Simulated assay, not measured.
Amino acid sequence: MPLHPSSRVQKAREGLAGRLREIRKDAGISGRELAVRCGWSESKSSRIENAKTPPSDADIKAWCRACTADDQAPDLIAANRQSADAHVQWRRLQRSGLRRLQESTGDLYQETKIFRVYVSDVIPGFLQTPGYAAALLSSIADFRGTPDDVSDAVAARMRRNEVLSNGVRRFSFVLEESVLRYRLCSAETMAAQLGHLLGVMDLQNVAVGLIPFSAQRAVWPMPTFTIFDDTRAHADTLDAAATLTQPSQVELYSRAFERLSQEAVRGAAARSLIAGALASLD
């Protein structure tokens, strides 16, 4: 298998190969014995262990079965599937404009029933007004040097966000108070955005929690992430969007969301924080 052009993807593949090698060693068997138990050639075992050949799901199941480590197969299979796209470069996604980036998650949004969203930097896309979205996406387009299709991208985001009004789906948001204070747009646009946030909090299928600046933290502020049902998590960085599907990874982010949720205030206390941010715009 040739080296993947993305060093991160190649590292993920090598990490998977290393985990399989450790499982074999922990079982106390040689590559030859593993091959015999799996019913394939010794060279295949070697190629998999050295990240020369990507294993199939069936290969991973057979490997774990041969090493009496069946419980590790689900995580390894998920790692194998995501190694090719675990880190999707923003530049590649955005080179044809921001509209396609908004539309790329449309099917995922329609399929998901429970959304859990933690944000520490901006108003979540789900909750953005057209004005706020336009200001934010314009800033991103300028920074990235992508085609200027902000108007189309905003329209696509608003269409995508229609899932919020579908009572079948449930949304739980945890936001840092800083999200209410960062000035990414004009005072008028920010006021409208904060007013919209207050309105969204009245929806029966939406729960919004805010972590105050004054909160005694047991968990530190983290980069933005979204959990889709219990099967997938997206974690954003400046240069990449990580798609995480391994059960252990999703569980880790679920645990982080639960801890962060415990530090958030809701109801009247949350509305008071938003009112304070509104007052500061004057």
Rank of each mutant, 00 (worst) to 15 (best):
P74C: 07
T105S: 13
G39P: 06
T237I: 13
D230M: 05
F228M: 07
R92H: 13
S214Q: 10
F173W: 11
S41R: 11
R259S: 10
W90E: 02
R8I: 07
R232I: 03
V174F: 07
A66Y: 08
W90M: 09
T231R: 14
W63K: 08
D121P: 00
Q204P: 01
V154N: 06
A73N: 01
E188A: 15
S43Y: 06
E103C: 02
N50C: 03
W63E: 04
A240K: 12
A191P: 00
F171W: 02
E103L: 09
T224N: 14
D26R: 15
F225R: 08
S6E: 13
S272E: 15
A192C: 03
G15I: 05
D148S: 04
H4T: 08
S248F: 01
V117D: 12
L180C: 04
I123N: 04
H4Y: 12
R19V: 08
W40A: 09
A156M: 05
F115G: 02
A58Q: 15
G195I: 02
D229N: 14
E162N: 03
R99F: 01
D202P: 00
F225Y: 14
G106A: 11
S41W: 04
I140R: 09
V119Q: 11
T53K: 13
R169C: 01
T237Q: 12
S178M: 07
V250F: 04
R232H: 12
N161Q: 14
R32V: 12
H87L: 13
D75G: 05
V88N: 10
I60W: 04
L108G: 04
S7L: 15
L20R: 00
D142T: 07
D282K: 15
E258M: 09
V88Q: 15
S83H: 09
N166I: 05
V168Y: 07
A268W: 08
A277P: 02
N161M: 13
E33D: 11
R100Y: 06
S83R: 14
G131L: 10
T245H: 02
G131E: 11
V150C: 03
E42V: 06
T224H: 14
T231K: 14
